[in-house]
Amino acid sequence: MSPLVVLGALGTLVSTITILPHVRHATRTKQPGGSPVAWVMGVTGSTIWLVYGVASGDLLVAAPGLVTIPCGALLAIWSLRGRRDAQVEQTVESVEPAPSFVPDEWLAAGYGSGDTLEMPAVA
């Protein structure tokens, strides 16, 4: 085996392993880090390299995709769902109650919103 192939294999191994701390962090904290767009771009790039490696018959080029594609897809989906859930929570928290248009006299008399009474005459 030539030194160039060994160097390529080492580079492939190191670059493939870099995704594993992200997966570990996400499973420990129950929150994926990073941008969903970045994860989708990473999965897309890994898929392209996998297809290229298979088509050219180069296992060193194709092999990382077997790890990075499933891990990146998991983190992309997870971060998208987490972002959507956070937006829903933020929306629910930011909704203010509608202002009441019931006259104070009616509220003092015990009539609440939704009761049907004629508006008092304006003098």
Score class of each variant (00 low, 15 high):
Glu96His: 10
Thr116Trp: 12
Ala38Asn: 10
Asp115Gln: 07
Pro3Glu: 15
Val6Glu: 11
Gly34Asn: 08
Thr12Tyr: 06
Ile19Met: 03
Leu80Phe: 07
Ala121Ile: 10
Pro97Arg: 11
His25Glu: 13
Ala73Ser: 12
Gln31Met: 09
Glu105Pro: 01
Glu105Gly: 07
Val6Arg: 14
Asp58Gly: 02
Thr12Lys: 02
Asp104Phe: 07
Ile48Ser: 12
Val95Ser: 14
Val43Glu: 02
Ser79Val: 02
Val5Thr: 15
Val14Asn: 07
Val5Asp: 11
Gly8Glu: 06
Ile19Lys: 03
Ala123Ser: 14
Leu10Gly: 06
Leu117His: 02
Ala26Asn: 02
Ser94Phe: 01
Ile69Asn: 07
Ala121Cys: 10
Val92Met: 14
Ala123His: 12
Val67Met: 05
Pro21Arg: 11
Val67Pro: 01
Ala62Asn: 03
Cys71Pro: 00
Arg81Ile: 10
Met119Glu: 13
Ala38Ser: 13
Ile48Thr: 11
Leu80Met: 14
Trp78Ala: 15
Trp106Tyr: 13
Arg83Tyr: 09
Leu20Ile: 14
Ala55Phe: 03
Leu13Thr: 15
Glu89Gln: 12
Arg24Trp: 12
Ala121Asn: 11
Pro97Cys: 07
Val43Asn: 02
Met1Ala: 12
Ser79Phe: 02
Pro103Ala: 12
Pro99Asn: 04
Thr116Gly: 04
Ala62Cys: 07
Leu59Gln: 08
Gly57Met: 02
Ala55Asn: 04
Val54Asp: 06
His22Thr: 13
Leu66Lys: 04
Val51His: 05
Cys71Arg: 02
Arg24Asn: 03
Ser56Gln: 12
Ala108Ile: 08
Asp115Met: 09
Ser2Leu: 08
Leu50Val: 02
Val67Arg: 00
Tyr52Asn: 09
Ser35Gly: 09
Met41Asp: 07
Arg28Cys: 13
Ala123Cys: 09
Gly72Pro: 04
Ala63Pro: 01
Pro120Ile: 07
Leu10Val: 15
Thr16Trp: 03
Pro32Met: 06
Thr68Ser: 05
Pro21Phe: 00
Ala76Cys: 01
Pro120Gly: 01
Leu117Thr: 04
Glu105Ile: 05
His22Ile: 00
His25Ser: 14
Thr44Arg: 04
Pro64Thr: 00
Tyr52Trp: 13
Thr116Ile: 12
Glu105Trp: 13
Ser56Asp: 08
Glu96Ser: 10
Thr116Lys: 13
Val37Gln: 09
Leu60Thr: 04
Leu4Gly: 04
Val95Arg: 15
Glu96Phe: 08
Arg84Ala: 15
Gly53Asn: 00
Arg81Thr: 09
Ile69Thr: 08
Asp115Tyr: 09
Asp104Thr: 13
Trp78Asp: 07
Leu107Asn: 06
Gly65Gln: 00
Ala98Met: 14
Ser2Ala: 14
Ile69Trp: 03
Ser35Lys: 08
Ser15Glu: 07
Trp106Thr: 02
Ala73Leu: 12
Ser15Gln: 11
Val14Ala: 15
Pro64Met: 01
Val95Asp: 13
Ala73Phe: 07
